[in-house]
Design a protein around this nucleic acid. Structure first.
Length: 654
RNA sequence: GCCGCGGUAGCUCAGCCUGGUGGAGCGCUGCCCUGGUAAGGCAGAGGUCCCGGGUUCGAACCCCGGCCGCGGCUCCA
């Protein structure tokens, strides 16, 4: 008998049992059987199929499971590669990429453009291959074999892969890091070109220009429908769109790209976040400092930014001296630190600032609030003894987890960035320093017990770092929190403390930000909550509406409540003009969480009817508003309830 | 920066292919309706068709350049 696993159900079935291609409302079509044989080999077959003799167990893989879609797109990528090679033998394959319902296949085509007609032929041919072509893993040394076949780009890629495998699609040979492929992929109901673009080989702008075909594909129309519904759902969460609906921010060509103008509602949100994060840091032993936006380039000469970061800096002349808008706050904090001598007893010193920085980012990279040219970092620099590093890092990691969980964030992961040991020229500092720095960070992560990924070669020029990465509603990745160890600036600015033995010793600096940037973080929060951010952060927290715009008593009573709320710092708005329903609609469009209504009944009794609308999700992770009704018997009751909610949401900080 | 797509009323968009006096819905203003949890009715105002140049008797429309936006590549908070 063979164990057949279908979601939570396990059944013992005899070999020969037929497993059909069924559909699941959230997981999509059952596309593959993933079997483990009695001699522990892994086998994948496309459904419908029969359970084979010699299997120990078999799992039904649905399209919208991680493994199901990975195998599907991974295999499809090879079919597209094979089509390219069959139709255009002079093309050189250059790898592929799988992301959100599409696969992008890169190839070098003689440096010339690849037409849409050509791409369409490729897709048509791949569709045919899906039904017919035999896919198998073949033996041999990938690097040698690929070189022999003229695929020098793939051969190069194989060198940096953990366990490269050669894959044959009929007689075309390509490269993969997975051996999990069905022998035949089978019918693909939906497959079309979603984009044609170019990209640079290895991401280097000075290297080969590759052509890329982006292909969207789904095993069945049913899966495409689920995918498109989800994407539509995600687009509703787009922070740029929400920013317009909620009247938060804008940009103007008269100001320039990537520079945000905050309208009153957006500014209120920023202010709330600013207040929260500053108060929290004060409680955690950070001292507030404040520094200017510009400095002479002499400062950045010393810090090394001019040498390593010049292409991102806005430079200008003042009194015939070169100046810069600050791209980072660290040199300023260091100057403040250096105003006096420090004893080992006084460390660590933690300076915190909501620091406004300006960085020249290339036009093509700018996006909404998540990638801009002027932004505020919740920036702190911790000046510490070497023996204090690990503890400080641990503190920061737990602060990150505390803040993020208080904010209800979950789509994030930790990444440890290390230097590329083969490119030591690109980094400041000695091998010794780097090894110590890298191992300190990794130990702190391990002690925290969080899972993390490692990226070799992604370290900053001055030190290794831990980053927190968020995925937005459309699957794009954005960096938020960052912890960067720095053994270099202390050298450059000669930062020392007097140790127990009365000898000056070198300090270390930890750069860290938790929100990352206020702008980006607001973008992340808007998407996470589909605009329905928690009460404490809502741009307008309460809307007060009289039922009848023409009834003086109701309007007067509404105004009274509104003014009382405003006087104690609750962000409120009074909506009196027009019929009730359109006003209610406006309050909802603006995502105002508390809607207070005053009609005849309420005027008589002095009470207030409240509808409280907050974010919640259905079982498919879609946003659905949660609505609660309250009736407060007087103003004080309403105010106490609002204050209690805000305090609870911010762990008593606000 | 590179490739693709786009920029028309405050917002969302049609018109552009095939050149001949600029449209819709929402919003805004006024009037009517006096209302109880997501759009009541009627009327009106509102435009540098992104900017600059070219082709043409004539350009929102065709061509060139720039700016800005969107999606990718890369980089990053």
């Amino acid at each position: 008998m063979v164990s057949l696993i279908d979601s939570d159900v396990v059944e013992e079935v005899p070999p020969g049992t037929y497993v059909d291609q069924k559909k699941h409302s959230t997981m999509g079509t059952a596309v593959f059987l993933f079997a483990i044989t009695k001699d522990k080999k892994k086998v994948v077959v496309r459904l419908p199929s029969k359970i084979e003799e010699g299997w120990e167990r078999a799992e039904v893989l649905y399209f919208f499971s991680k493994r199901g879609s990975e195998i599907f797109y991974d295999t499809l990528a090879h079919l597209i590669e094979a089509s390219i090679k069959k139709l255009f033998p002079k093309a050189k394959l250059a790898g592929y990429n799988i992301r959100d319902g599409e696969v992008r296949v890169d190839f070098y085509f003689d440096g010339s453009e690849f037409s849409r007609e050509n791409a369409e032929r490729v897709v048509e041919f791949a569709k045919k291959l899906a039904d017919e072509a035999e896919i198998k893993v073949i033996d041999g040394n990938p690097e040698d074999e690929l070189k022999k076949r003229g695929e020098d780009l793939l051969a190069y890629l194989s060198k940096s892969m953990g366990s490269p495998k050669l894959i044959a699609v009929n007689d075309v040979v390509t490269l993969c890091d997975s051996e999990l492929h069905p022998k035949r992929l089978g019918k693909i109901e939906e497959m079309y070109i979603s984009n044609l673009s170019v990209s640079h080989w290895q991401g280097r702008e000075d290297s080969l220009l590759l052509n890329s075909i982006h292909v969207s594909a789904f095993p069945t129309s049913f899966d495409r429908k689920i995918f498109e519904d989800r994407r539509e759902e995600a687009e509703k969460r787009d922070h740029v769109k929400l920013g317009k609906e909620m009247d938060l921010f804008l940009t103007s060509p008269l100001v320039g790209a990537g520079l945000i103008l905050w309208a009153p509602n957006g500014a209120a949100m920023r202010r709330a976040l600013d207040e929260y994060i500053v108060k929290l840091h004060q409680r955690r032993g950070y001292q507030l400092v404040s520094t200017p936006h510009i400095a002479t380039t002499d400062l950045f000469q010393i810090s090394g930014h001019l040498a390593h970061y010049k292409k991102n800096m806005f430079l200008f002349n003042l009194d015939e001296k070169e100046n810069a808008l600050k791209p980072m706050n660290c040199p300023f904090h260091i100057l403040i630190l250096k105003r006096k001598k420090w004893s080992y007893r006084e460390l660590p010193v933690r300076y915190f600032e909501m620091g406004n920085v300006y960085r020249y980012e290339r036009a093509g990279t700018l996006h909404g609030l998540t990638r801009v040219r002027g932004f505020v970092i919740d920036d702190a620099h911790i000046f510490a003894r070497e023996d204090q590093i690990e503890e400080e890092i641990s503190h920061i990691l737990s602060l990150i987890e505390e803040i993020y969980s208080a904010m209800g964030l979950k789509n994030y992961s930790f990444n440890l960035s290390l230097r590329d040991p083969s490119d030591k020229e690109g980094y400041m500092g000695s091998d010794e320093i780097w090894e110590h720095a890298e191992s300190s960070l990794e130990r702190a992560l391990r002690n925290m017990g969080v899972s993390y990924t490692k990226s070799i070669g992604d370290a900053a020029f001055y030190g290794p770092k831990i980053d927190v990465i968020f995925r937005d509603s459309l699957g794009r990745e954005w960096q938020a929190a960052t912890i960067q160890l720095d053994f270099n600036l202390p050298e450059r600015f000669d930062l020392t403390y007097t140790d127990k033995d009365n000898i000056p010793r070198r300090m270390v600096i930890i750069h860290r930000a938790i929100l990352g940037s206020l702008e980006r973080f607001i973008g992340i929060m808007l998407e996470q909550y589909a605009g329905r951010v928690p009460l404490w952060l809502a741009p307008i927290q309460v809307s007060v509406l009289p039922v009848e715009e023409g009834d003086e008593k109701q309007v007067e009573r509404a105004r009274q409540i509104y003014e009382k709320l405003m006087s104690i710092g609750i962000r409120a708005t009074l909506l009196t003009e027009g019929r009730l329903n359109p006003r209610l609609r406006e309050a909802r469009m603006l995502r105002i969480p508390v809607i207070a209504v005053v009609g005849e009944k309420e005027v008589k009794s002095g009470s207030i009817s409240v509808r409280y609308i907050t974010y919640s999700e259905d079982k498919n992770g879609r946003y659905v508003p949660k609505e609660d009704e309250f009736n407060f018997s007087n103003d004080e009751e309403l105010i106490e309830w609002i204050k209690a909610n805000i305090s609870k949401q911010t762990n008593g900080v606000l």
